[in-house]
Design a protein around this nucleic acid. Structure first.
Lengths: 361, 361
DNA sequence: GTCCGTTGCTAAATCGGGTTAGCGCCCGAT
DNA sequence: ATCGGGCGCTAACCCGATTTAGCAACGGAC
């Protein structure tokens, strides 16, 4: 009934040669193994005519190579924020003829173990361990296990202890500098407040690499210009409602000239608070932010923000993973490199020169 | 160096039996094939102690079953809107010990062909063909091919010609009714306007099943209550900027008492336009919408909307796919069933009783 | 003592390729 | 005529499971 898939044996028969010969020709090793031009042509033609395509499962069994990589994340895969990360990884993998297994752990260690097992059982050639937001993670034993050094890359995450795994991360420090420079370039020198973290390096959400690094970058660029952060409000979570609350709290005592919000959702809350106090963006208060979440271009005025390069992160992770797969295993053991992907500024309409009037605070 | 994976042969040796016997016991067919209790226990214990887990690639080669399904979409996989669809599919698949291959076609037919090939080469057991937004699609030949009836399900899509493939879709008609009833229940009878589609059944974006069905549901529920749509504005695309423009255009001539926006992004634009005209939601104008996009709970007042059940859609698609896989192939050929997943109302703060004053229009 | 039927297990084939070792053949040299 | 050697190809084994066919041992009936 179902006309069986074309196999190597079919091609060999059609070309009148042995399976070995057909395999040799099709794997390109025909030349070095002295297969005649004539036979080579016959095999190639037969394969073409029969539309032969090797069964990857079979190849996988024999060679241990499945042309598949596993993408394991806490919840990034389905996060609305980071779908582009998958997209980048997907495309980079596809260009090399690889497929992607997707898996989510939900932060559950047991689920993670099961998932890695399932991928291992399917002989994935490499792993990408991704996190939804930039932070430190504990690398699962199954991956570290020196016994089975499956190539792996951390994406948007840093190991919480030294491992030989490379990591791919957005360049958050530079992003912080960018955000600060956007304000400096617009002429801001006073009344710059932070919403979401700061002012001190300790005033940062747990485990959040992004927060700490953005803050460091901000202080650095501001410091170079001799400018000091006028104040800051932290948020228990980086959501609009907390951005709203934090900004309201700030506005009760001071009149800022510029706000650096630690992400776009916080900025959205800040917009609402500013509106409540009758303050106009950017005429009264400039706002810069991070992430380039879709809402950044939906709010009015559209938000100037330092974009999280999700797509590039995904691509880069796959690139690094392939380097890892192809790398000579001899030099294993040395600590993994950290690759930084630039975060570009999306200049829009939320930043302007500071008003002439003196700030209140 | 790398201590080879434990294979069936290892278990057999440890238990002092043949591979056949070990396989029989482990596949649960030991009983019917008269394997003694003693041997069964020995095999089970050996497998346990060695932590044996079958190599799925090998099983795949032998049985043709890979415990893997392919999730192919135009761009849903990475759409911020529909990541939950993947999540639902992922979880439903995982519960059955299946993994998911993700692929994106970007709407490119050639890419789609390649992708389906790659999945076929990896012997996927079934396919989910998903669309980012509810619409009709052309089912690729590779899937329809009567020769190799690979089980498949359409997700969030309807075939553009009769096929035996089942489809899983949100119940958009009921959603339309829901939206209308929310307004009716609040006491609205006049001044109900639509933004995004309508008023006539032809005033709908190309190929959009969602638009047509939501509109039909709205008319139906309103009609039952003897209420007529006061007017409508279409949008070239369902984005905030067009929602803004359409609503502004509407407000130039009339004072609506309620707006049904065809999705949340349009509603966001509508909010901005209402604000421009000094109209308060919901005191002056009630707003209902569709999708339950994250912004629906970020805007103020939070938006009452009929939710797109992405997670459930993903789960349902996998359920239907498994039914398809297990289904007796005998009854193939009959047209595929269409499964509707309910769209629940998320009641929030954007709807109130209509103001006493007469509407202008 | 022979035959037959169970019981309890295993040898061997199979899936679809990759890989190693080596087989004939023809040529020229001895 | 014999031997060595390169050339061109193939037999056979391997990956790790499943599955079919069948073997050895034992007991009971005649």
């Amino acid at each position: 009934m179902s006309p069986r898939r074309v196999t190597l044996a079919d091609v060999a028969k059609a070309a009148g040669v042995s399976r070995t010969t057909a395999s040799l020709v099709l794997s390109g090793r025909g030349r070095e193994l002295r297969i005649s031009q004539d036979v080579e042509q016959r095999v190639l033609r037969a394969a073409e005519e029969l539309q032969y395509r090797p069964n990857i499962v079979s190849v996988g069994l024999r060679t241990g190579i499945s042309r598949t990589i596993g993408f394991v994340s806490d919840t990034v895969a389905t996060s609305r924020l980071a779908g582009d990360m998958i997209k980048g990884a997907l495309e980079a993998a596809r260009e090399r003829g690889f497929m992607l297994f997707i898996g989510e752990t939900e932060g559950d260690a047991e689920l993670e173990r099961l998932l890695l097992q399932a991928m291992h059982d399917r002989q994935v050639d490499g792993l990408i361990l991704a996190s939804m937001f930039t932070r430190t993670i504990t690398v699962p034993k199954a991956v570290t296990a020196a016994l089975t050094p499956l190539p792996a890359v951390l994406l948007n995450a840093l190991p919480d202890r030294p491992t030989p795994l490379p990591a791919v991360l957005p360049d958050e420090i530079e992003a912080g500098r960018h955000a600060a420079r956007v304000l400096l370039d617009a002429g801001h020198r006073d009344g710059v407040y932070l919403i979401g973290a700061g002012p001190g390096p300790g005033d940062v959400p747990q485990q959040s690499v992004a927060a700490a690094e953005r803050l460091a970058g901000i202080h650095e660029a501001l410091g170079e210009a001799g400018v000091k952060v006028a104040g800051a409000r932290t948020c228990p979570d980086w959501l609009p409602e907390y951005g709203l609350a934090a900004t309201r709290d700030l506005l009760r005592t001071v009149r800022p000239r510029a706000l650096i919000c630690f992400n776009d959702r916080i900025a959205m809350g800040a917009y609402q608070a500013l509106d409540d106090f009758g303050l106009k963006v950017p005429a009264d208060v400039s706002v810069v932010s991070f992430d380039d979440h879709p809402i950044a271009s939906w709010v009015r005025p559209r938000l100037t923000t330092v974009a999280l390069p999700h797509y590039e992160l995904g691509r880069k992770a796959v690139d690094v993973l392939f380097a890892e797969i192809e790398r000579d295993r001899a030099d294993a053991g040395r600590p993994g490199r950290v690759h930084r992907v630039p975060m570009p500024v999306r200049a829009r309409e939320s930043v302007a020169r500071p008003p002439a009037a003196e700030p209140l605070g």
